[in-house]
Amino acid sequence: MPSSHGSRPQTAHQASASPTARSHSSQATIHWAIVGGESGPHARPMEEAWALEIRNQCKKDGVAFFFKQWGGIRPKSGGRTLRGKEWNEYPPAEKRLAASAA
Score class of each variant (00 low, 15 high):
1 M>I: 07
1 M>A: 05
1 M>G: 14
1 M>N: 00
3 S>K: 03
5 H>S: 14
5 H>I: 12
6 G>W: 11
7 S>G: 10
8 R>T: 13
9 P>C: 04
9 P>S: 13
10 Q>E: 15
11 T>R: 10
13 H>T: 13
14 Q>F: 00
14 Q>A: 01
18 S>Y: 12
19 P>E: 04
20 T>I: 04
21 A>K: 12
21 A>G: 14
21 A>L: 15
21 A>C: 14
22 R>C: 01
23 S>E: 13
24 H>I: 15
26 S>I: 02
26 S>A: 15
26 S>L: 08
26 S>H: 13
27 Q>R: 15
28 A>F: 07
28 A>M: 00
29 T>W: 03
29 T>A: 15
32 W>C: 03
33 A>M: 09
33 A>I: 04
34 I>Y: 01
34 I>M: 15
35 V>P: 09
37 G>T: 10
37 G>P: 02
38 E>N: 06
38 E>R: 09
39 S>L: 10
39 S>K: 02
39 S>F: 13
41 P>I: 04
41 P>E: 05
41 P>T: 10
42 H>F: 15
44 R>P: 07
46 M>T: 13
48 E>C: 00
48 E>Y: 12
48 E>L: 08
48 E>K: 10
49 A>M: 00
49 A>K: 06
51 A>H: 03
51 A>D: 05
56 N>W: 00
56 N>M: 08
57 Q>E: 06
58 C>V: 07
60 K>D: 12
61 D>C: 11
61 D>W: 01
63 V>R: 09
64 A>S: 07
65 F>A: 00
66 F>S: 10
66 F>M: 05
68 K>N: 12
69 Q>Y: 12
70 W>R: 06
70 W>A: 03
70 W>N: 11
70 W>V: 06
70 W>G: 04
72 G>M: 00
73 I>Y: 07
73 I>S: 10
74 R>W: 01
76 K>T: 14
78 G>A: 07
78 G>D: 12
81 T>A: 12
82 L>A: 05
82 L>M: 10
83 R>S: 11
84 G>M: 04
85 K>I: 09
87 W>C: 14
88 N>H: 02
88 N>V: 01
89 E>C: 04
89 E>K: 00
90 Y>L: 11
92 P>W: 02
92 P>Y: 11
93 A>M: 13
94 E>Y: 01
95 K>R: 14
95 K>Q: 09
96 R>W: 05
97 L>R: 01
98 A>P: 02
98 A>Y: 09
98 A>C: 05
98 A>F: 11
100 S>K: 10
101 A>H: 04
101 A>K: 08
102 A>W: 05
